[in-house]
């Protein structure tokens, strides 16, 4: 039978995939995709805990996470378009203009 730990393990695996993406990608658009993967992993964990503890709070938090993800994408894509207009590239190495 599928228990809570199965869902949590799948969620952790997907979260790790997103974390790998955040750590190793240098393109800003790919970083956005990796953050979406991580947000989805957290949503799975919330829905699973909500189901196995018979509590609706987890689903509520998943709704708010989806709302936050939507607004993050709207603002972030606007910023990405501005950056692309200014620099002609979305690579993080090209955008680093503060040399420390």
């Amino acid at each position: 039978m599928i228990g809570l730990s199965h869902y949590l393990i799948v969620s952790a695996l997907i979260f790790s995939i997103g974390l790998v993406g955040v750590l190793r990608r240098r393109n800003l658009l790919m970083l956005f995709f990796a953050t979406e993967v991580m947000l989805n992993a957290v949503n799975i964990a919330f829905a699973a805990i909500s189901h196995y503890y018979n509590d609706l709070t987890g689903q509520m938090f998943a709704f708010f996470i989806i709302a936050i993800a939507a607004s993050e994408v709207a603002v972030g894509l606007g910023l990405l378009i501005l950056l692309y207009k200014k620099y002609g590239s979305l690579d993080l190495d090209d955008l680093a203009n503060m040399k420390g």
Binding site: N43, A47, F63, I66, A70, L77
Partner: peptide, 27 residues
């Protein structure tokens, strides 16, 4: 699909509408 298995029907529909419908269209 995970959400539908877990009995969170409304969350699954919201996931389809918002993520697949809106966010991916935006991308």
């Amino acid at each position: 699909g995970f959400f539908f298995i877990l009995g969170a029907d409304f969350l699954g529909v919201v996931q389809l509408v918002v993520y697949v419908g809106a966010i991916m269209a935006l991308y």
